[in-house]
Design a protein around this nucleic acid. Sequence first.
RNA 1: GCGCUUGUAGCUCAGAUGGAUAGAGCGUUGGAUUCCGGUUCCAGAGGCCGGGGGUUCGAAUCCUCCCAAGCGCGCCA
Length: 588
Amino acid sequence: MITVRERNLESRKVVDCPFTISRLRNPFMQTYLHSAILGALSEMGGAPDDFQPEFQQPGNPDHGDLACNAAMQLARHFRKAPRQIAEDLKIHLEALPVDPDRISAIEVAGPGFLNFRFSDVYLFKALSSVLEAGASYGRTHSGEGKRALVEFVSANPTGPLTVGHGRNAVLGDTVANLLEWTGFEVDREYYFNDAGRQMRILGESVQARYLAAVNPDLATKMIGDPPDETSVPEPFPEDGYLGGYITDIAIKLVGQDGLDPNDSEQFKKAAEKTIFADIEGTLGRMGIKMDAFFNEKSLYDSGQVWDIVEKFRELDLAYDKDGAVWLKTTAFGKEQDTVLVKSSGEPTYRLPDIGYHVDKLKRGYDRIVDIFGADHIATFPDVVAGTRALGFDADRIDVVIYQFVTLVRSGQPVKMSTRKATFVTLDELMNEVGEDVTRFFFLMRSPNTHLEFDLDLAKEASDTNPVFYLQYAHARIQSILRKASELGLGNGLEADVTLLTHDAEITLMKTLMGLPDSIVRAATHSEPHRLAGYLREVAVAFSQFYNHCRIVGEEEKLAAARLQLARATALVLCNGLTVLGISAPDRM
RNA sequence: GCGCUUGUAGCUCAGAUGGAUAGAGCGUUGGAUUCCGGUUCCAGAGGCCGGGGGUUCGAAUCCUCCCAAGCGCGCCA
C-alpha cells in the first residue's frame, strides 16, 4: 500500500497546531468506493442483492476522510463480528487493489468502521479541477433537462414588502439559484390576486384619503379600539389600510385628469400600480427578478377552477350543503370538510390555490417549490392532497415553510403590527443594514426555525458578523493576489501544487472540494443555510491557512503553489456567495 | 380541545440516511501575532440534546406518552 499520506501524517504529528478539520463531501469518491466495496464483497461470498454500502464524513480527523459502515450492516448476514468483516473487506480491497492515486490508506476502527484516507495526488487533482472550472465550479448536472418553478413572495399588492416577506423572497430566490446550479431551468413566479376583498378595501382606503385631500372640510371619524384609536376621513373603511403610503398615493392622484372620485375601482388600480412598482423596486435591490406574475384572476377567466369543482364532484370529493360547495378534506385526513365555493357563488381561496397548482403541474415542471409562511402550515396539505386526488403527480411539489422573523434591537424585540402599520419595511431594513447582510441573515438559519434578526449584530462590521467574515476572507485573498502580481511573484512559473503539504493546506484543499456537493444538498432539501454554513467552513480553513502559510516573502516555487490555492479559495467563496445572491468584494 | 412546527452550551444556532468522544459563532477566561489587511489566530471553561418509556449492535435523530413555546384550526387570504 502506498502511504504518501501516511508519511505526511507522521511528520505532522510534531506540528504544534491541531486543526479543526472541516467535514468534506465527495460524491465522486463515494461512487468509486461504492463499487470497490461491492466488488470486494462479491469475492467474500456476496452480500444481499439490495445491499448498498453507506458512507459518512467523519467529524474526527483520526477517522480518515470517508468512512463506511458496511461491516456493521452486514454483521447479521455474515453471522460474524463486524470488526472481522471489516478486516476481510480491507484485505480484499487492498488486493483489488484500490487506486493508490485516490486512496492512501484503509483502516479498521471502532465497532467496525472502514476508514479511508485520500491520497495527496487526489487532492492535487481536485485543486487543479477547481481552478480549471473557474466561475462554474460548483455547477452540477443532476437537474439537466429538467424544469423547475419556484413560487415566492406572492404578497398581494396592498402595501410595501415587510421583513417577513423578505425572508420569503430571499429563500425563494436562493432556492431558485441553487436549482439553476444543479442544472435545472428555473422560472421564478409571483402569484397574486387583485380581485379580492383585500384589494377592494385598499382602493376604498386610497379613495377616502383622496377625498379628504381635495376637501379639507370632509368629516372625520374614529376607528379602532382604545388606546389605538385613529382619526380617519368619514368614508374610510372600518378595516382599511392605515399606512402613510396610502395617503402618499392619494395625494399624487390629486388633480389627475379623468379621475372619477366616486369610482373606488380607479383608486384601486392606481394603488396597485404604484405598490407593485414599489415591490419590484424592493426586490430589485436584493437582486431578485421575477420571470412571471401570475394573476389568480386568470384561473377564473379560463374556467379552470370550475372544471376542478366538477372533477371533484365526479370523484365524489365535493358535495353541496347549505348552498355552498364543500370539499371532503376529511378524505385527506382532516377533521372537517372545508368550503370550496361560498353560497354567494364566490370560491374560497382554497379552490384557486388548487387550481394554480394544477396549472403549474400542467405546465410540465419537474419540480415545483412553494415558499410559504408558517401561517399556511395547515392549508397547504389540502392543496397537495387535492392535486393528487385529481390525478397529478403531487410529489413534484415541495413546500418550504418558514417561521416568522423577529427583529431584535438592543436585546429587545421590535414590536410590529400590520394593522397599525408599525411594521418595518424591507426597504427600511436594507437601508439600515445593507442588502448583503439582509440576504445573508435570512439565509443563515434553517427555514423552520424562528429567525432572530439582531440589528445590532447586522450593522457590526467585524468578525462577529458572519457576512463580513466571509466577505473579508475574499477581499483579503484579492489583496494578496494584487500584492503578488505587483511583485511579479510566480510570473512565468508553472505552479507545482505538490508542494502543498502543510496541514492547513491539506485541510483547505479538502474543504474546497466540498462546494458542488454542498450546493446539491442545499438544492435537494431547499435549504440554503447548508451552503451558508459550508462557506463559513471555507473561510475558517482559509484563515488557518493564511495564519500559518505565508505567500508573499516565501520561496518563489512554494509561493506560486500557494497562490493557486488562494485563487481556488477565492473562487469557491465567490461562487458560493453568488449562489446566495451576495457580493464578493475585492476590497472592503 | 385538535393539527403542524419547534425545544441541543449563558445567548444565537448547526448536527446529512440512525454511527465512533454531540459541534460552531457570540459572550466569558487565558494566550499568540516585529507579518500578504489586527475585520486575525490558538486554547480553556461551559451539555440530563425539554422529560419519561420503547425500537436495536448503536438514538439528539425513529415510535409513544407527557411538558413548554410559536403558528393555524372562518362560507377571510
